[in-house]
Write a protein that binds this DNA or RNA. Structure first.
Lengths: 198, 198, 198, 198
DNA sequence: TATGAATGAGTATTCATTCAT
DNA sequence: CATGAATGAATACTCATTCAT
């Protein structure tokens, strides 16, 4: 009723405002996550976004919701890249390698995000599930293609490999002797068929 | 004279008591670590050990000291196994594989310990350094032998590989679809020379 | 429109509430300081004010901020009295004596506050500096005038004398045989020129 | 009976040991007091003395006992200097000035000891009383002589003046602009008769 | 009698979360 | 709907004091 009193235009304006607000909030949260990790104090995020903490709780009741929202677009892009790579790369294995590279790029540049892949806290369960729901099918597709083309071993669980890749990206920053891409490269090399031609 | 004997005896007894206490404390801490991770509240550990918090601070001024002490023996055993395996296994690569298996066994059974390998908190720096100081040289030796025998690629950094293995063990429990040993197996397979015989 | 009015009003109301709260907090803190000194536990102050400890930390991040706020008005009044006395008293020395009396009155009635004048703790540095910044200039003015009129020795450091007066007020309560005003009177008498007329 | 079994010699040896111990303890405590103030942790004192904390508690059940013991000799010397100065100095006032100088020298070189003169904690009551019992009579004598010779005002309470001097010595170290001797000089100057000759 | 290990109360401080305005 | 003030549980750490050896 209140909405009716305000009229449709007002409601739309409101919604637009809310959206702008949410967008600003997500941008700010992303920055804070990079700087302080996904465990950053809620107040810091609110301050960075220029909103009150209450606003954050309204939009994202739990932290996982916020993290999910923050990275949704990027994860989305990563997910969509799978089929595309499969279509453009020379072989399914090449596509798989490229895709994993994208995944790694995504993870290592987000301080602390990789930890999400391993976190067992109940609050992160939703986020965890969301990541998997969105990316594992893509990964499945790539693995299936590469297995069918005989480029990688059969019997591999794409989920497990993704989880492994995620783990390898944890804490990659700040240690000059540890290069997540390099060790992921080793892992990916290990996927190849045991008795491949060369 | 009695006093002198008593004094000496008392001193030794005292130390023995303290040592027993320390042992009980380490056992309790190990259990709490398994249940709640290495970040478990000091009070919980104290309660589990049946001592006051002061006693913990007396024996282990900071948390890293406690963690180090808790896992010292096991890490020690792991370190000592390296040369032994090199002597008994058929090839250096076989020894390396077995040794990494031991390392993984050690890590995956200790909830949260693997996190230590990646933790960047200043409080964990000492512990981190200790782990590396003790295990990296062993790892170096195994890698050198396997590289010399032509079983693995050259140019690998054992430290980096250990770090990767550590990461792969993070959060291994509680996820039935993720088997740290299996993914480490993939990584280790990736170490092999690119153009190995078979 | 209603909303806009409400928004503005709400914001102002909020701030007013917070201010009221802060005032209550300051009053409570002042009382606790009198009863238990400026080192009183934060929790006691919070309890006395009927607020949570977090509220205190919100308003006054460190103890010095709280103490400063508690005594700001009184110190302010003391500072402002300097020039006024200079204008109304018969001679500069008389003004100085009266002003020091005010200062003493202020200090002796605040249990533990005088200790602030001597505290060397880093946390009190700000407070200490603030006290001095505000009062020393006033004191300088009074001393300069009294020196020019030939009523007191030259070469005195007003800061040092203030510090001395502050020290003389320490622990003045609770000892019936020690009267801060009396001993300060002795000190002030000692300021007079050595070869004054009478 | 046990003592009888040990024999007189043994008992005497024991007592000698205990005395040596107590002496070492006092020396160590004095050093720690200078370094960290009279509120230094008991354990620090014990460590400095090379004894267990229990030993300190045995010899000095409360901190005040320890402080008293630590400074007993020096206070004693100060007390004894009073009559001596009265006998050797030209006038009673000169003796008084010299004696107060001694008192100040004693206080300012002992970090935190001066605080004892103002402390109202029950634990320090004994110490406080002891200081006064020993020094006030001496001070009385000096004041009486100086008053009789007409060099200082009459009606002064020596106790109060001592207390004031003690206060003026508080926090004297660490502030280059505050010189306890100087301000005590002002106070002492203020003691002179209001209408003295020159 | 000396020791020092153990105790645990006391205190500061942070931060997620709620709710009146 | 947004705000941010208020809350208070949680946790680390210190240190005086006791007591078994």
């Amino acid at each position: 009723m209140v909405r009716v009193q305000h009229g449709g235009g007002a409601a739309r304006t409101k919604r637009a405002d809310a959206r702008r607000n949410e967008k600003a909030l997500l941008d700010a949260a992303a920055e804070v996550f990079v700087a302080s990790g996904v465990d950053a104090p809620v107040r810091d995020i609110a301050a960075a976004a220029g909103v009150g903490v209450g606003t954050i709780y309204r939009h994202f009741p739990n932290r996982a919701d916020l993290i999910t929202a923050v990275y949704r677009h990027q994860v989305e892009a990563c997910a969509e890249a799978g089929p595309a790579l499969l279509a453009t790369e020379a072989t399914p294995y090449a596509a798989l390698v490229r895709w994993i590279d994208l995944f790694v790029d995504f993870l290592v540049t987000k301080h602390g995000l990789a930890a999400v892949m391993q976190s067992d806290g109940p609050g992160f369960a939703t986020l965890h599930a969301w990541f998997l729901d969105r990316l594992v099918p893509v990964c499945n597709q790539l693995f299936a293609a590469a297995a069918e083309s005989g480029e990688i071993r059969s019997g591999l669980d794409p989920y497990e490999v993704m989880r492994a890749v995620g783990n390898l990206c944890v804490g990659a920053e700040g240690d000059p002797r540890y290069d997540a891409r390099r060790v992921v490269g080793l892992l990916v090399a290990g996927l190849r068929t045991a008795d491949r031609p060369g």
